[in-house]
Simulated assay, not measured.
Amino acid sequence: MKIFLSADIEGTAGIAHWDETERGKADYCEFRELMTAEVLAACEGARAAGATEVLIKDAHDSGRNIIVDRLPAYARIMRGWSGHPDTMMFGIGPDFAAAIYTGYHAKAGSEANPLAHTTTTRVSRVLLNGEVASEFTFNALCAARYGVPSAFLSGDTEICADARALVPNIVTVATLEGFGRAALSISPAQAREAIFEGVKKAIDGLVDRTVPVVPGPYEVTVEFVNATDAYRASWYPGARASGPRAVSFASDDFFEIQRALRFLLA
Rank of each mutant, 00 (worst) to 15 (best):
I159E: 03
I159G: 05
C160L: 05
D162W: 00
A163E: 03
R164N: 02
R164Y: 01
A165Y: 01
V167Y: 08
P168S: 08
N169K: 14
N169W: 00
I170K: 10
V171I: 14
V171S: 13
A174E: 15
G178C: 05
G178L: 08
G180E: 00
S187F: 11
S187H: 12
P188M: 09
A189F: 03
E193W: 01
A194T: 04
F196Y: 15
G198R: 09
V199I: 09
K200P: 01
K200M: 11
K201L: 11
I203Y: 06
I203L: 07
G205M: 03
D208L: 12
D208I: 00
R209M: 15
T210P: 00
P215T: 11
Y218F: 15
T221Y: 00
T221W: 00
V222D: 09
N226I: 05
T228S: 13
D229L: 10
D229G: 01
A230N: 08
Y236T: 04
P237Y: 03
A239R: 04
A239V: 01
R240I: 02
A241E: 08
A241N: 06
S242E: 15
R245I: 00
V247P: 11
S248K: 09
F249S: 11
F249N: 05
A250W: 00
A250D: 02
D252N: 11
